[in-house]
Write a protein that binds this DNA or RNA. Sequence first.
DNA 1: CTACCTCGAGCTCA
DNA 2: CTCGAGGTAG
Length: 342
Amino acid sequence: MFNIFKKKDKVVISLTSSPKEPKESEKLEESKKYIRHKGISLLSLPDNYIVLDLETTGYNPHFDEIIEVACIRYSGSEKIDSFHSYVQPTPYGDDSIHYVDDFITKLTGITDDMLVTAPKFKDIANELYDYLGDSVIVGHNVNFDINFLYDNFLKCLGCEFKNDYLDTMRLSRIALPDLPHHRLKDLKEYFSIDGVQHRALNDCQITHTVLSKLLDYIQENNVDLERYLHPKRFDLTSLTGDVTLNDPSNPLYGKHCVFTGKLQRFVRKDAAQIVCNIGGCCDNSVTKKTNFLIIGGLDDIPLVKDGKSTKMKKAEKLILDGQDLKILSESTFYDLIEDSIK
DNA sequence: CTACCTCGAGCTCA
DNA sequence: CTCGAGGTAG
């Protein structure tokens, strides 16, 4: 099985510009050069994949550098082979050779001595690039690693790193939403996994164990990944009210309601539930059936310029056509449902 | 109905 | 970066 997460495909055609093109579009081309065209974030795996981890001198791919890289290739749950190398970053300071500061040494155990004889990234770039091939990359918050690799491959080889990837942190947040945190450390404890953290190869092993535990859990508990692969907006028409709470004397009873804008006191689904309990019915768009349009705040919402959403404009037109439709302010709406929310 | 955009909140990586 | 809650266009 091989799911694909939908993503806007911002493919940029490069270098077709002629010298006579106006400045405006040249600037656009220029800005596009800094967009990373990465692979796709997956939620399930093909048979072959590579677990990867980097140690770096910091968080920022722009200023910081890779000091260790490790990968393990798997076929299913079986380890095939691995790749490991220290990487020598550019030294800092004067005479004495310093590659990493105390904080990073303390965190990772990697010292200047270990990097003196290490290859630079450009020396391993080809071998690593070939090793990774077009395999799916697995890692914890793997975007971090992908971004470092992307920049380094681009710089050293002039090519983009476009491999698809699976992020165990994303998977964990979906599978175990009740965990307070989803750091690798937390999952290591949660699943009782042994091993010292912050060494690249160890972290690969830990990440792989986390991965298989998560996949087992997802399998056993029928976790719905489809929802994240094809996100759907909540369908208000699917709501069913509690009949015992129906209030035939309420003006909303038996009427069709639509919301626009952001409500102060509720998310829309909860407000819709209240309407349904009264005995009303909620829809997602203004139609010939609509009796009430409830207006939340439109200020923050993009594309609503003149203070009127398209729902509001449509409603005003229908009212002119004689439809039994009233536009309610948010506070009027609260007055109407007051009795039902106790 | 389906697809895609946008914003803010919350979080993890060395 | 991802998700959820809002929007629009076709």
